[in-house]
């Protein structure tokens, strides 16, 4: 057995473990925001490890660059997708877990102009947040 195979196999198994954990997390966590935590972080890491394994196994510049591009793309899009989806879920009023302790976003959406197509954003920061 050579080192390349050993490292690639370990990366594959680690990626599989993270991917499995993220899927279990999506089922097990109690509200949509925590499910996004599990799906975004562990899922991206697992997929990234598997892509790393592929780049090691083939060991050519073109393939390494390609799998890096996919990984970079995942790093770029996974948080953006989670952000857009989290905002949509919040805006649509998906309930949070009852043990959520604090919600500084509550009541910050502009209720007045609910025109279709116009995206809701938090209105200007109020005075109740103790920061400059």
């Amino acid at each position: 057995m050579n080192w390349v195979e050993l490292i690639a196999g370990v990366l594959l198994l680690a990626g599989a473990a993270f991917v499995l954990v993220s899927a279990i997390g999506v089922v097990r966590f109690p509200d949509v925001y925590m499910r996004m935590h599990a799906a975004t972080k562990a899922g991206t890491l697992g997929a990234g490890l598997m892509l790393g394994a592929a780049s090691i196994v083939f060991g050519e510049l073109g393939i390494t660059v390609r799998s890096f591009v996919v990984f970079f793309f995942l790093l770029l899009t996974a948080p953006v997708a989670a952000h857009v989806l989290g905002r949509a879920a919040y805006y649509a009023g998906v309930p949070r877990w009852e043990r959520t302790k604090l919600d500084e976003l509550a009541g910050r959406y502009d209720e007045a102009d609910g025109t279709p197509g116009e995206l809701g954003r938090p209105v200007q920061r109020g005075d109740d947040i103790p920061y400059p």
């Binding site: 996004m36 948080p79 910050r108």
Partner: peptide
């Protein structure tokens, strides 16, 4: 993006004047 991919935090929204990030 970095906040969303690091332990325990997920960015949800940004205020209109870009002065405040709301993080879960």
């Amino acid at each position: 993006n970095m906040v969303s991919l690091t332990p325990g935090t997920l960015s949800i929204d940004l205020s209109e004047d870009r002065s405040c990030l709301y993080v879960h």
